[in-house]
Design a protein around this nucleic acid. Structure first.
Lengths: 137, 137
DNA sequence: GGTAATTTATTAGCTGGCTAATTTAAGCTT
DNA sequence: AAGCTTAAATTAGCCAGCTAATAAATTACC
């Protein structure tokens, strides 16, 4: 068997290259690569608990906790107590957190172009479907 | 625009899920996810310098250096001086490093099956081609 | 109502990726 | 030969992912 031709190998290599692109793309907005996905989720639904964010993002709770630490330091989100359960906290966007969205959308569109640079429109569409399938969608 | 449907979003999500699978797959061989790729490269060509490994694996030199630290500790590789240039070291597989290959090939085949579980053979082929294209191959 | 089990957040600590800065050796230029 | 530039390895330090373990609150069960 040939490692280099395996999906696993190719996927791992693509992942690293893409994360480097992603990091460059979002640094202009003052964000780090992992923070972006939490922001996506909060833009969809503000005020979620950490455990909900972890579930929806498919991340381990300590990962979300650490990322939120950075977002709190950067003043992109704030924490508030969850009224129905003293164990939980709710995470809310700050004004800064809401305002950065426009900037990030622009950067994201550019990233999308860079990422799919070598592909035709048909190939891009196909890749999207295949990645979706890998995620069980 | 919809973040969730972007290639970048899907790719990032697939990457994380796949790395978790990868980690589980190779832990049985006593390896960590990042170490595997260095081993691949050494199985192809033993005795490479760190800078050559970094170039061929598309990784930053400090990343390779750190991974090699783990492989040295695990007795999978040894370091030797490079005879023509005192700045460089050559990395060689130990017997243990050579022997683990068979085990890893089995695990890798299983990982490949898990990874492409939801895909038909045609889709798998297509995904391989598309990922190759993203890598500029 | 009291105890046990579960849940949420957090802390500690690991690997893996990066950049920036340092050291040492090699090579080039003059 | 001296000095400048380049190149290789390393160190330090960052973020992102994970597991395991802990503390506190809730829930469930008897």
């Amino acid at each position: 068997m040939n490692f280099d031709d395996s999906i696993s190998f190719l996927l791992a290599k693509v992942s690293i290259a893409h994360r480097n692109l992603l990091q460059k793309a979002v640094s202009g907005a003052g964000l780090h690569s992992g923070q972006v996905f939490v922001m996506f989720e909060l833009w969809k639904t503000d005020g979620q608990r950490q455990i909900d964010l972890a579930d929806r993002l498919n991340l381990a709770p300590p990962t979300v906790n650490k990322i939120l630490g950075g977002l709190l330091d950067g003043d992109f989100v704030t924490r508030a107590k969850y009224e129905d359960d003293a164990r939980s906290t709710r995470i809310f966007l700050t004004d800064k957190g809401k305002e950065v969205r426009a900037r990030l959308e622009e950067q994201w569109a550019e990233l999308e172009i860079e990422t799919t640079e070598g592909l035709t429109d048909t190939e891009t569409l196909m890749l999207r479907q295949l990645l979706g399938k890998l995620l069980g969608q």
